[in-house]
Amino acid sequence: MSGAGKRFSKLQVFSDVELEVGEREVLAIIGPSGCGKTTLLRCMNGLIPLTEGEITMEGEAITSPREGVAMVFQHFGLFPWKTVFNNVAYGLKLAGATRAQIDEKIPEYIKLVGLSGFEHYYPYQISGGMQQRCGLARALAVEPRVLLMDEPFGAVDAQTREILQFEMLRIWESRPTTMVFVTHAIDEAVLMGDRVLVLKGRPSTVHEIVEVDLPRPRNRATLLLPRFAELREHVWNTLMADARQAELEVIR
């Protein structure tokens, strides 16, 4: 991945977003609700078109979903009529894998995300956390060079969310890819990202890009580092200045 530079404006959701994501870099995108984080990510996937500017990957403009990119959705997006196994195999199957390749690879990814033994369960039979593990395995199974995460842990409860964050770090450590991680949780952004992009304003623009110089591999101990708290405070203050202003607007 050579990097991506882009500029946008879509119904003034965001505009003039310029950035580049390096190979195997984790970029966390954070911003207040409704600032267009998810829209930006969908544009990166090519699910919706830009109205201005362009996004390129490996030198090619993204106009529709392309090979080498996979997305994990906030709503999980599992198919209720498919078992865990078939859900995980979905992307790989569409990519043209043979039955033998699927039978060989899918168990590996199911094991990686910790779902062994649940291959033949249907999504409604497993918990929200397990459903998202399944969604993650489906994305990883196509061996993407870029992984797009759309508030992946936004729909699970707080404890599961923490568990999944550390699982995600473990999995990323075992097969690092370029990752764009959209979240509205500051801790999560700082914990995951090599850089944290703060998106805000109306229309949203890149307000600040915070370098996260925390050592990898990261784990629970990372949360206790003074530097973690410092970065967390910094991002918090950056975001809150805006939130307070928004609140004042409402009061007036």
Partner: peptide, 27 residues
Amino acid sequence: LEYLEVAQSFRARPFQTLFDIIFPSSL
């Protein structure tokens, strides 16, 4: 719409979306 978005994201062709998603979802 979520299902269709997932299909699109994984680059399903229209007839694959028809048989993989629209048909079972409508069953």
